[in-house]
Simulated assay, not measured.
Amino acid sequence: MQISVRQVLADNDYPGRGLLVARTPADGLCIVYFMTGRSAASRERTLVLDGASLYARPRGVTEHDPLRHYRAATIGPAWCVVGNGDQVDTVITRLATMEPATAVQGIAYEPDPPLRTPRITVVASRTAGGPMLIAGSRASVLAPEQTYVSTLTVGDVAVGSGILTTTYLSQDRHVVSTHQPPSEVTVAATDAETLLELVWSSLADDLRVAAAVVLPTAAEPLVADLLRSA
């Protein structure tokens, strides 16, 4: 059974933060990173380009919060890393000497009990047709103090399809699970801009915070035109 990314997001009214890996006819491989938030502190953020990196930062002057303010994407010579926390820094450093599946090991979920928000990460090759890895560091169901790291290795993504992973599965905006695996979805987008608009418009107006598209194999993977902010 095929299901669209719009429907998956509509059925999950508070996804937290999410990553969508998809392929469009015009722009090829795209990685969408998006943030939603229920609290005022979570909503008072934006995504900012700074050189070869994308940062989640506060809109105004406020104390640094490592669970809300972090480098969300960075572009290295061989790899692009996108994620929802400071594991992005850890993984890009490790990739200098490790393969992606090894580089994501040992990363713990966020220290925010009782939620125990997962760390979700995409590692994508800068070479067209190269490998991708989608990783999730999630609390064990039976022993929540333990982190289980799951990885999904993707050789390629067909045009019009994608893989979506989110931190939360919610009903009536209450988190019911942090353990859901990535979902294969259909994606009706012709290029990176329409893909970004598709994701952005699928998020609840009063919860969406920011979103961006990263083009890992493009000459310029990060461009200002592919950012949205509430």
Results as ranks from 00 to 15, higher is better:
90 T>W: 11
90 T>H: 06
90 T>G: 00
90 T>F: 05
91 V>P: 11
91 V>R: 09
91 V>A: 03
92 I>N: 02
92 I>E: 12
92 I>Q: 12
93 T>Q: 14
93 T>E: 15
94 R>N: 13
94 R>K: 14
94 R>G: 08
95 L>V: 11
95 L>W: 12
95 L>E: 11
95 L>K: 10
95 L>S: 13
95 L>Q: 13
96 A>F: 13
96 A>Q: 14
98 M>A: 15
98 M>D: 15
99 E>G: 14
99 E>S: 15
99 E>Y: 13
99 E>R: 15
100 P>G: 08
101 A>D: 14
101 A>H: 13
102 T>F: 13
102 T>H: 13
102 T>R: 14
102 T>P: 01
102 T>N: 11
103 A>F: 12
103 A>R: 05
103 A>C: 09
104 V>K: 08
104 V>R: 08
104 V>C: 09
105 Q>F: 06
105 Q>H: 07
105 Q>A: 11
105 Q>W: 07
106 G>C: 02
106 G>K: 05
106 G>P: 05
106 G>N: 03
106 G>Q: 08
107 I>C: 02
107 I>S: 03
107 I>Q: 06
107 I>H: 02
108 A>N: 00
108 A>C: 02
108 A>Q: 00
108 A>Y: 00
109 Y>W: 04
109 Y>D: 05
109 Y>I: 03
109 Y>M: 08
109 Y>E: 04
110 E>R: 12
110 E>Q: 13
110 E>I: 03
111 P>Q: 00
111 P>M: 00
111 P>E: 01
111 P>R: 00
111 P>S: 01
111 P>H: 00
112 D>C: 02
112 D>Q: 01
112 D>Y: 06
113 P>Q: 01
113 P>L: 01
114 P>N: 00
114 P>F: 01
114 P>Q: 00
114 P>C: 00
114 P>Y: 01
114 P>I: 02
114 P>S: 00
115 L>Q: 02
115 L>H: 04
116 R>A: 07
116 R>T: 01
116 R>E: 00
116 R>S: 02
117 T>P: 01
117 T>N: 03
117 T>R: 08
117 T>Q: 04
118 P>Q: 10
118 P>W: 00
119 R>I: 07
119 R>Y: 02
119 R>V: 10
119 R>D: 10
120 I>P: 12
120 I>M: 09
120 I>F: 06
120 I>N: 12
121 T>C: 15
121 T>N: 14
121 T>R: 09
122 V>K: 03
122 V>S: 05
123 V>E: 10
123 V>W: 08
123 V>R: 08
123 V>K: 06
124 A>H: 02
124 A>L: 06
124 A>V: 02
124 A>Q: 04
125 S>A: 14
125 S>T: 08
126 R>I: 04
127 T>F: 10
127 T>Q: 15
127 T>E: 15
127 T>S: 10
127 T>K: 14
128 A>D: 10
128 A>K: 10
129 G>P: 01
129 G>M: 03
130 G>R: 11
131 P>C: 09
131 P>D: 10
131 P>Q: 08
132 M>G: 04
132 M>S: 02
132 M>R: 09
133 L>W: 07
133 L>Y: 07
133 L>N: 06
134 I>E: 07
135 A>C: 07
135 A>W: 05
135 A>S: 15
